[in-house]
Structure formats: C-alpha cells, structure tokens
Design a protein around this nucleic acid. Structure first.
Lengths: 211, 211
DNA sequence: TGTATTCAATACGCTACCGTATTGAACGTG
DNA sequence: CACGTTCAATACGGTAGCGTATTGAATACA
C-alpha cells in the first residue's frame, strides 16, 4: 500500500464527502479498537486503518473517545437490529426454547469482536458517565428484547416465570457473553461458543413453573 | 506532601530494602490500576503513589505490565485465601445455601476494586498469552473451591447435581461478578451488590434434583 | 570505624503523539 | 468555465513519557 486510497478497491472512488469520511473512519476504527483497546490507540492508527491522514481525523472528530462512542453505538444498534430480525424470523406458533437461541446467535455472529468491544466499553463506562448512559441504554434495550422472547416461549409452553423475565433475560445474556469470553481466553467451562442450549433450557425451566 | 516519604507516617521509617520497595510499589499500584486501568498508567503514577521516584521503579521492575501481573496475582491469592477462610469458618454440619453466600461475600468484600481489576486483567488476557495463563489458573482455583462448597451443600440437602458442579460454580461466579459490575454502572437488574441469595438458591436447586 | 555494596534519586536525550495552522485539490454553483 | 467553498493533506511546534546513565546516600560487613 503506497498511496493512501480510502477503502482500496471499492468500485467507484466514492466522492470526497464529509459523511463518507466519517463513516469510513468509524468503520475502520472498529477493527483497531478490537485489536488494541481504547487507550493505546493513536489518531494515526485510526486514519491509517481507513486510508486517511491526520487532517481527516481532526476535521471530523475532536477526540479518539468520540470515535469510540460512535463505534459502540453503531455496532450496538447492529446487534439490536440483528436480534429483532432473528425474532421476527420465527413464526409465532413455532416458539420453542430454540427461539431464544436464535437471538443469542445474533450475538454469537459478532462473536469475538463484539465481546471485546463490549468489555472495553464497559470498562470505560466505569469511569465515564456518558459512556455509562450509552451502555445502560443498550443493555436495557437488549434485555427487553430478550425478555420478550422468553416470555413468548414460556407462554407457548404453558408456563409462568417465578420472577421478572427481565432478570432471566439478564442472566441468560450475561452467561452467554461470559461464556464467549471464556472461550476466547481458553478455559471454556460453559462452552467455548457461548452458552449451550441445554443450559438456557435448564435456566428457563428452572425459573418458571407450569401455569 | 512536600518530601516523598514512602508510606507517610507508618511508625518506623522501615529500612530501605529491595523487598520493601517492591512490596510498597505493588501495594500502591493496585489503587492506581483500579482508578485508571492499565495503559493510561505511567511509571510516574506508580512511583508517585508509593512515594518514590522513577529510579526505584526501574531498579525493581522492567515494565508496567510486570507490576500489573504482580498486582493481579497478589490480589487473586488474597481472594482465594479469603474464600477458603470463609469456607472453613462454617462447621460441616451447618452447610446450607447460605454457605455459598459466605464464599461470595469474600468477593463482595473486595467489591468494586476486585471487579475492576479482574475486568481489566481479562481484557489483557485476550491479547496476552501469559496473562491468559495467569487468569486461567486463578479462575480454575476459584471455581474448584466454589464447586466444592456447592457439592457439600447439595450433599447436605440430599440432592445430586444434574451436571458438573464446576459448571454450576462457574455460573454462580459469573453472575455474581456480572451483578457487581452492573451495580457499578448503575443499572442493577440482578441486585446492585452482587447476586442475591435467592437467585443462588434457585440456581442450585434448579440444576439439581433429590437424590 | 572504614570500606564496599546496594539501590533509589536525579539528570538527560530521545521518541511518539498531540493539536493547530496552513496549503491545495476536489467539488458544487452561478 | 470561472469562482467560492469544503475538507483532507502536510508541516510544525510543543509536551509527556520513556529508558539509560550517573550520582549519592544509606546499609552491610570486615
């Protein structure tokens, strides 16, 4: 790579417009943050990955954190959208425990990258109020979606939950993410590829009873 | 603070010995890592917190990561020791679900600080093989201890687990840590102060059956 | 008590990265 | 097809933090 051509080889050169630059920068930054985390990343890393130089960065953003926020928001919306799509793909009368799995698959599909981004952003949230708000918003929305599926499934099975389905959803999501992380780190007690279906099933059944 | 007196006001001035310096540096570094994370920390932050200057650092360590490892190992051992102590404090014939709680309390006692250190170290482990090994070792030891308690409790209750108690232990530990983190970030669906006892109880009962 | 050794304090040069200011090429507009 | 505008590329000075080399004060030891 000699010349710095943004997104090398993408058909038409794409007009030099502000939105393009921002979008490409955010897009490319995702991989950089996944690879390095937040603090070790430099402005040159980001523009380098996108095929720009420093000037493009400061003309579009004022700090690296700003980009990080944008990346998280964007990928978070992606996750939520994927989860919704997965839900809607299942016809109402086919709800089974497996339906929960298909929502979890939306997370699994982003796998390693989402896990890392999420962990990194959580750490930021511990120290930054605004990040806290963004994270809380995402988490709640995801939890609510998952809770809805769980509720549907329970209804279909003719069972009622012992406690708020949101708690159940929180547990399932937490364990799923945790298992994904364990898989990355090597020791995978709960399954290297996220939580297993029979664990989900045992959880959902264990926290509910026949209506 | 004008003069840099290590551990200001601790009775005797304490001899200027290598081990002392190392120990103080590690001790003081804990707080710094909790506050800032890993990468943003500078050598001056660490020696400053301990009341030394750069010289002391490079004469005892060769990188900041090295100190970070040492901090995690040390606090990890502390956690394990606290967990063991908690276990042994309960007479064998008194095992109830609450016994599990007393192990979790060992974690709760370190609360916020342990959560952050652990999260920070996990992120490092995703990118560093040696950290991975250290983390795996800690996690396994903790899981085994917790699994032992769970097993004892189940035996006492005349129940048998549906699946390896280590899996159960992993779930309980993961949810506990997750809940602690949620508490720090604000939204505490599973209880702001770690996992609640009736969740633990439901989990343990849900994943076991009468013998 | 004098001498050798240990180890933290200081001094120093170096590099990486920052953020601003300036330049100049692509684009829209009349 | 000129003109103005938009925005990324480049050039720059400033700073923070690094790691080494040297110094000097404790401590051990004879």
């Amino acid at each position: 790579m000699t010349t710095a051509t943004p997104t090398a080889g993408s058909g038409s050169p794409a007009p030099r417009r502000r939105e393009n630059t921002r979008a490409r920068l955010v897009e490319a930054s995702f991989g950089v943050f996944v690879e390095k985390g937040l603090k070790p990343v430099t402005v040159d890393d980001l523009v380098g990955a996108a095929g720009y130089t420093r000037g493009a960065f400061y003309s579009n953003f004022s700090s690296i954190e700003e980009v990080f926020f944008e990346v998280f928001r964007e990928r978070g919306e992606g996750m939520l959208a994927a989860a919704s799509t997965a839900m809607e793909a299942v016809p109402e009368e086919d709800f089974t425990i497996e339906s929960i799995g298909s929502v979890l698959d939306a997370v699994r599909a982003q796998g390693r990258e989402w896990y890392i981004l999420h962990a990194e952003f959580t750490l930021l949230a511990l120290r930054d109020e605004r990040a806290r708000a963004v994270l809380a918003d995402f988490s709640e929305r995801f939890r609510v979606r998952l809770a809805a599926v769980i509720e549907d499934v329970l209804r279909r099975l003719g069972r009622v939950a012992d406690r708020p389905t949101e708690e159940l959803a929180e547990m399932v999501a937490a364990l799923h993410l945790h298992a994904l992380g364990q898989g990355l780190v090597g020791s995978a007690v709960l399954g290297a590829d996220g939580i297993s279906m029979d664990t989900v099933s045992a959880l959902v059944l264990g926290f509910s009873r026949p209506a």
